[in-house]
Design a binder for these strands. Structure first.
Length: 565
RNA sequence: CGGUGAUUAGCGCAGCUUGGUAGCGCACUUGGUUUGGGUCCAAGGGGUCGCAAGUUCGAAUCUUGCAUCACCGACCA
């Protein structure tokens, strides 16, 4: 490709709307352009990268035995009613009507469509197991699109689905997919971790997320420093403190301060206080009807996923309003405490270990000190409901927890039969009986990977692409080609040979000054530059510059092709 | 959905307080100059000042409403 025929579209200045480095560089290097909130056009350079990521994913999916298909982005609403997600999915699901006023959705994912397809196509256990995948545009009407293509509303995703008669078979495929994912991210040269993940509302038993480590990531990942344990913080278990709880030594006293003031103005340690959060609870029939108090040590944070997964707590987790707090406890939320509440009390394991602790007194601007479980509060349930913090013992039993930020680029689930049941996806088994299938699903955010790769690979000059996904393998940068016939001939000849050999080469034939060309190629992250100048032509040499290492060297012109063998 | 801020040329911004018909840098066009790290000089083109209503002789500027974008929060496979 010649730059004179190419849409380079680099920018000197950073557009004001770009927050994270990958978004800034994607705009500056001319990879994408914003169309509307969360919607991006891929320019030629960006599309080259996107396609390379897509192809690596495709190759590894095929190697894992999956068949590629392509499903419509627009899906009829009745499929979603059949699975129950028409009601469950919420406003993230973009709904629309066709000219006959028939309801459709823009697919945020394709479980319904694929399950329906397989239900229609398969009839015998002999056709199992089967894995299908596609690379397709997804649309999710995100509440808050941000960071460019990192969290766009429309994005490119590889989604794969596997179908099995038995769970053991599903587990085997799950492991194959797990390995395929590791290979994909290794080929992309990303610093990534598979982490244990929450299955969320999609259901299922087992799930891993694949995270690219980067400070701009939106998720917290808990690692062990003593093993390879890693889990999304949503899912990382906070172990119960070891040892016996200390015996009470103090009597309850009432203090005329709200808890926050008590901690700030006296020597009461926040770690020896508990905070109390009132949330909606569920009845025995699973209906939302009452309240539950969640009690945590003062310095700990509530883990909403853990709380939500408790049967006593209504999902989605809903905090009680100020009015509701008044009804239940007759005080403001800042003075809530577990003692004297006439509702179910769920206490975090760490909070349950405290003795002689401080808490709100359920009277405005009053607290208790010297409170003790058992003695002062008998009826409590102890659960793990907090986020792990750095330094906690790892739930794997070895080492301590460290927390880092990650960008979720992949997620694999053992779905089970939720969708197969809903969509009536079954085959005849060996005994001639109808048997509902069990499913796995496996997603990779293809467009998000492009952003994640930049987050991990850039410097002050621009992007430093991993080899496998660079838009071009090499650029030819001629010095003053307009004035030097030799330079022009050499550059053209090199371009011709590289092109012939199928190397992706960008020939900078613009009439620009060298500095401009260097700056553009560094911004775009081309891994190798071939600099052709009068200076080295007498010796039949060109200069080779490596974008990643910054190394420069001179090589003979007839050695150039050997670089790409 | 709540809070905050923004919206003036393709991009980055100034002008608004104190109303008088729009400017700077980059980019773009033309000519010259320069050519191993974003040359320099000159001349140009380009804007319904987000939209609508109001106040006023007169609105980018004041008032009101709306829209869009972003950030923080809530929310979210």
């Amino acid at each position: 490709m010649r730059t004179s025929q190419y849409l380079l579209s680099t920018l000197k200045e950073t557009p004001a709307s770009a927050e994270v480095i990958s978004h800034q560089l994607m705009l500056r290097a001319g990879l994408v352009r914003n169309l509307a909130s969360g919607l991006y056009t891929w320019l030629p350079t960006g599309l080259r990268v996107l396609k390379k990521v897509e192809n690596i994913v495709r190759e590894e999916m095929q190697r894992a035995g999956a068949n590629e298909v392509l499903m419509p982005m627009v899906q009829p609403a009745d499929l979603w009613e059949e699975s129950g997600r028409w009601d469950d999915y919420g406003p993230e699901l973009l709904r629309l009507n066709d000219r006959h006023k028939r309801p459709f959705v823009l697919g945020p994912t394709h479980e319904e469509v694929i399950t329906k397809l397989v239900a229609n196509e398969l009839s015998s256990y002999k056709q199992l197991p089967l894995s299908l995948f596609q690379v397709q545009t997804k649309f999710r009407d995100e509440i808050r699109p941000r960071f460019g293509v990192m969290r766009g509303r429309e994005f490119l995703m590889k989604d794969a689905y596997s179908f099995h008669l038995e769970d053991e078979c599903l587990e085997k495929t799950y492991q194959i997919m797990f390995d395929a994912y590791c290979r994909i991210f290794e080929r992309l040269e990303l610093d990534f971790r598979p982490v244990i993940a929450d299955t969320g509302s999609i259901g299922g038993e087992k799930s891993h997320e694949f995270h690219v480590l980067a400070d701009s990531g939106e998720d917290d990942i808990a690692f062990s420093d003593g093993s390879d344990f890693a889990a999304n913080i949503e899912k990382a278990e906070a172990l119960a403190p070891t040892g016996e709880r200390a015996q009470p030594t103090q009597e309850i006293e009432t203090v005329e301060l709200k808890l926050e003031r008590l901690i700030k103005t006296t020597d009461t340690d926040v770690k020896n206080s508990v905070k109390t959060i009132l949330v909606l609870g569920t009845s025995a029939e699973g209906e939302v009807e009452k309240f539950v108090a969640l009690v945590l040590r003062g310095d700990h944070e509530l883990n909403e996923v853990k709380a939500e997964n408790l049967p006593q707590v209504a999902a989605p987790l809903t905090l009680a309003s100020d009015e509701q707090v008044s009804e239940v406890a007759n005080c403001h939320r800042t003075s809530l405490g577990p003692k004297g509440l006439n509702i179910e009390i769920i206490v975090d394991r760490s909070a349950a270990q405290l003795s002689d602790f401080a808490c709100g007194a359920n009277v405005n601007n009053q607290s208790f000190t010297g409170v003790n479980w058992d003695r002062d509060l008998a009826e409590i349930t102890v659960q793990d409901i907090r986020n792990v913090v750095a330094g906690d013992p790892s739930p794997c039993g070895q080492g301590n927890i460290e927390i880092k930020r990650g960008i979720e680029v992949g997620h694999i689930f053992q779905l089970g039969s939720k969708y197969a049941e809903a969509m009536n996806c079954a085959v005849l088994n060996e005994g001639g009986k109808n048997q509902t299938l069990t499913m796995g699903c496996y997603g990779i955010g293809v467009s998000r990977i492009v952003a994640a790769a930049i987050e991990q690979n850039h410097d002050k000059y621009g992007i430093k692409w991993p080899k496998a996904i660079a838009p071009f393998q090499v650029a030819i940068v001629p010095m003053n080609m307009a004035k030097s016939a030799r330079v022009k001939e050499t550059a053209e000849a090199l371009y011709e040979s590289l092109n012939q050999a199928g190397i992706e080469v960008l020939f900078d034939d613009r009439k620009e000054r060298p500095g401009v060309m260097f700056a553009d190629h560094e911004l775009m992250g081309t891994p190798l530059l071939l600099i052709v100048g009068e200076r080295n032509l007498d010796a039949q040499q060109v200069e080779l510059k490596n974008r990643i290492t910054g190394e420069k060297s001179l090589i003979a012109i007839d050695e150039v092709m050997a670089l790409f063998n």
